[in-house]
């Protein structure tokens, strides 16, 4: 593949295209993914290229979509399904929790489910009610699922290819607001695989831990802080499950201070889990309590109010300022 400047949406589209080319059993289906190419155009042109049997629209029923994918995966296929919006995915919750996550365990590994549930997720696109939840904590809390959230164009390609190749089910969280962000990339599977976090920026003073849509925000905050004389590390988790304790803890130990940045409401969330496990492992390396910059514990706000909910650069800067620098 050549070096080119493409968006995350295009990279995801190419990943699906290449996966479907490489393996006849890869199927893509969901709502409006056929002729329309998906409401975010992630499946653009796939029906045209691979035919109705490989990329197709279904009746409008998310539980049915995921349930059917379970059956297809049981019988030799590698289904990829799209939940049109994160907050439309809840009718499928029963299927995901009771079957997708448990099938391998309950059958002692006799049935594996190589399937991917693609989920356009999180906010920042001015979506009206029921279009912008950050539902990753529900899935991360469910043993048996692999939960992935790319933050870069290159990762979107690599991680989706790896997710489709994985013999186990993956909930693939695609940050909606990054769909149109373009990057110059080599469209190959050159990035690390699922389960590996990456340090996006090295810095000795504090570590920002982010995933999905908050990674670019964290990087921006680190730029601003650098101008003020402090160097921040930024860790991009890339996958929430499996969680890369090693990379995260190594970064925190190097810096002694950390801030977790996530869009989801903070209470009982992935961000609270990160604080808990890092504290358990790195307590003696910490010079200050780990801070969190998360969404408030409120339903996702209407478009005109979402700016108050989303973790922005200023809130991250304030949290960094609060890391008890005067005590060291």
């Amino acid at each position: 593949m050549t070096h080119m400047k493409i968006s995350m949406a295009q990279a995801l589209n190419q990943a699906l295209r290449d996966a479907m080319k490489a393996d006849d059993t890869v199927l893509m289906f969901g709502e409006d993914v056929g002729a329309l190419g998906g409401v975010f155009r992630i499946t653009d042109g796939l029906t045209e290229e691979f035919g109705e049997d490989r990329c197709f629209d279904t009746p409008l029923a998310e539980s049915g979509i995921v349930g059917m994918a379970v059956g297809l995966a049981m019988n030799g296929m590698r289904p990829v399904v799209e939940m049109q919006f994160d907050a439309f995915g809840y009718p499928a919750f029963e299927q995901i929790v009771s079957h997708v996550a448990k099938m391998r365990n309950r059958t002692r590994g006799k049935i594996t489910l190589p399937m991917v549930i693609r989920m356009p997720y999180a906010g920042g696109i001015g979506g009206v009610e029921h279009h912008c939840d950050s539902s990753e904590s529900y899935y991360a809390h469910t043993p048996g699922l692999t939960v992935v959230a790319p933050a870069t164009v290159a990762d979107a390609y690599t991680l989706l290819r790896r997710a489709i190749e994985l013999p186990d089910p993956v909930v693939f969280m695609e940050p909606k607001k990054l769909y149109w962000a373009k990057e110059e990339i080599d469209l190959t599977e050159g990035q690390p695989g699922i389960g590996t976090a990456v340090v996006r920026r090295e810095g000795a003073d504090a570590t920002l831990i982010a995933y999905g849509p908050t990674v670019p925000v964290a990087l921006e905050a680190a730029e601003v802080v650098a101008a003020e004389g402090r160097q921040l590390s930024v860790v991009d988790l890339r996958s929430i499950v499996p969680f890369d304790d090693e990379t995260v803890c190594a970064a925190v130990r190097r810096t002694g201070r950390a801030v977790v940045v996530a869009e989801a409401s903070g209470f009982a969330s992935v961000s609270s889990e990160i604080v808990a496990r890092v504290t358990e492992r790195c307590f003696h390396s910490l010079a200050a309590p780990i801070r969190r910059v998360t969404g408030f514990d409120i339903p996702y706000p209407p478009p005109k109010l979402e700016k108050y909910q989303l973790p922005g650069v200023d809130r991250i800067l304030d949290a960094v300022d609060d890391l008890q620098w005067e005590d060291s």
Binding site: G67, L72, M74, Q95, R106
Partner: peptide
């Protein structure tokens, strides 16, 4: 298939298995 306890949830799996068979 494994016995299903959550009612009717196995029925959509049955559809998937049948559809896969047709595709094959």
């Amino acid at each position: 298939a494994p016995q299903s306890t959550p009612l009717a949830t196995q029925l959509t799996h049955a559809v998937g298995v049948a559809h896969a068979a047709r595709l094959k």
